[in-house]
Amino acid sequence: MSAILEIESLRKVYADGFEALKDVNLEIKTGEIVALLGPNGAGKTTLISTVCGITQASAGHVRVGGYDILRDFRQARSMIGLVPQEINLEPFEKVISTVQFSRGLFGKPRDDAKTEQILRQLSLWDKRDSQVRELSGGMKRRVLIAKALSHEPKLLFLDEPTAGVDVELRKDMWEIVAGLKAAGVTIVLTTHYIEEAEAIADRVGVIAKGEMLLIEEKARLMDRMGQKQLEVQLSAPITEIPAALETYALSLSEDGCALTYSYDTRRERTGITKLLSDVSAAGLVLRDVVTRQSSLEDIFVGLVHAGEEDAT
């Protein structure tokens, strides 16, 4: 599938000299949902703002739908919808007129049916004539989403759409995202909730200190998480793995006191029983058995820590 967003060697140095993005490369395919995870100050918002034209890149290139965001800014920006992290709205404006304004600003002729559909989808139709300041925080966030959707973007950025949002609304949000994906919209969202990334993303990216540490298919990450390790500790060290145990693809620890076996918990036969009997059949004496499982959280924390150590 073709790429809707291509980011090449993107750097951003703020006026105060702070380097918020260091050589970021990213390619996002049409129709996918990508979740960006990262601690506070990682550079997620900076990345999105740069793609959308709110901050200026210090170096690098960005193309949206094949259009350069600087040279062909009209074509590129027409495709983008942005839901910012902060709730920035004209307090005295009516919900419906601020949504219509956004549509006009993006050069689309007024379309009452479309506006109504968007407002209904976000359960805002009953509030259409209310002033923005009369809405609750969650409703305001939905107004921001309505504004971003008003011009029917192909690529939607959601910067922490579920921050400070109750469980109910979070589920609603996930449904909206799923609905948009079904309608062919590509979505990039940032979040601090790992389970959110697990629930809705096709790919997960991890950013820390202005660097993309990882971007991978969620399924592959889940595979990694589905992997469990069984460590067989031996009472006496060995120098090599007995030939009888070759089929298990075991790895031997450096001191020769432990054998590690990786297996998939979701498979019907994990092979543990057979392994253990084969181990004793090979004349090895077990001292202890330990199992370990990695979660997305572990992978995430590990990556961020590694990134921090590299930086210092």
């Binding site: 959308c52 009209r74 590129a76 600003l105 993006f106 050069g107």
Partner: peptide, 16 residues
Amino acid sequence: FPKFIGTTYELLSAPV
């Protein structure tokens, strides 16, 4: 006013 309340993000990201 838009600068103050932060709604300029929309102007800057619009194809104008």
